[in-house]
Design a protein around this nucleic acid. Structure first.
Lengths: 221, 221
DNA sequence: TTGAGGGAAAGCGTCGACACAATGCCGGTT
DNA sequence: AACCGGCATTGTGTCGACGCTTTCCCTCAA
């Protein structure tokens, strides 16, 4: 494993895990000393994370991307376009095996499952569903979108009921895909994404004071 | 203008302009001496071009991305998803000014216009149309897709009739958007993308011997 | 006390060099 | 003549250092 990949992976995990807060300033020197790598691999990692939208140039220097409520709305539109296209392809593909794997992934979560796992499965459901389409570009688009949504979803205040509803909606989408009902799958997925966006934006909007108090930059819609 | 941006821009132009052929191997040393920059900005530029899909790592070293006919089909599906979503948004937005600018751009091409200009306008039409949607992610997706299509479209053998048909289809799409008829715009755009893909893949498939004779790597579908 | 100016420090852009790996070539051996 | 092993070459991964710009702070003067 090269130093560049090491730094990239660890830095991404720190950002997505909110160990480095949204809006926080980053310096190459700090990363250099933090990870024990020189600036060459550090710069390479920063360039990659920039294209993922996790960090941005801030004049001279780097800033961890803030939580941007307007951006969340735009991502929802983008997600809907690509995920619906992917699910339509998948429904026409008649690949039961892949669907079963995703269903098993969903079912691996129960009341005892830690929150981190629910979070990860919630993201991976959409990514794996897109992967079944067989279209590399749709998959990449979904993966990128979910990466950008990851921190916001982690900050969202979700009760048991919301988790259960998402779980049920995921299963309903899978059922429609399994029965090759592309229209139903598309409709359910659209509704799921819209509802997910509404809950997410509402939750973060209501919580924005608390988030800012924790040092997280939150850009209003 | 920093060296990194210089190298990135010039290298991208050389790749898109086929001055460096698809499938050709690149070494950092060669780029270094070619552009008179040291390897640090060269590496930064290569990393960015890699995320654009214009180059790829090839074990040790770099390779200019080959022309991939299967990829062109996948890009068409991806394009359709995001461009249709964008045009639906735009049709609902009721922004006549932006549409007029794009129409003027189309009309700036006539029989005297050089082929390069036709090529650029054909790409920019889709990018500018997506920009009107106001969604940064849809815009970025369309821009990325058109960048990846750029070389293949340049290699496509297009007669006057095909150029004229594309021009007419573009205008028809604009007309539908102008009259806020999202359904018609979506239908026309889908058909345009599908037809464009068919002509493109057919042309390159028929020409693949000639292209390979020119030293261009062409991966079959 | 306040403002301005200068200097020090911080930080990125860039560079050249070294280390390590892979590849190809050349010579010796069978 | 063919094969194998070692050496040279090539090329990336990484590093430390230098230069230039910007920013911050400290001091001095009004």
């Amino acid at each position: 494993m090269s130093q560049m990949q090491n730094v990239e992976r660890q830095l991404r995990e720190m950002i997505l895990g909110l160990e480095i807060g949204p809006g926080e300033r980053l310096t190459e020197r700090w990363i250099e000393s933090r990870f024990g790598a020189s600036r060459t691999p550090v710069r390479a990692a920063l360039l990659r994370l920039e294209t993922e939208g996790l960090i941005a140039r801030d004049g001279r220097g780097w800033t961890v991307a803030p939580i941007n409520l307007a951006e969340l709305g735009q991502i929802a539109v983008y997600r809907e376009a690509v995920e619906v296209a992917a699910v339509r392809l998948t429904a026409a593909l008649d690949d039961r095996g892949g669907i079963d794997v995703i269903a098993a992934m969903l079912d691996s979560c129960d009341a005892e499952t830690p929150r981190e796992e629910w979070h990860r499965v919630g993201l991976d459901f959409h990514i794996e569903l897109a992967r079944l389409s067989g279209n590399e570009f749709l998959l990449r688009a979904v993966r990128d979108a979910m990466t950008r949504l990851s921190r916001a979803r982690w900050l969202e205040v979700r009760d048991e009921k919301a988790l259960g509803r998402a779980w049920a909606e995921h299963h309903a989408i899978l059922a429609a895909v399994r029965s090759a009902d592309a229209e139903a799958a598309a409709r359910l997925l659209s509704a799921h994404i819209a509802g997910s966006r509404d809950r997410l934006v509402t939750s973060l909007h209501d919580d924005r004071r608390g988030l800012r108090a924790r040092g997280f930059a939150v850009v209003a819609a």
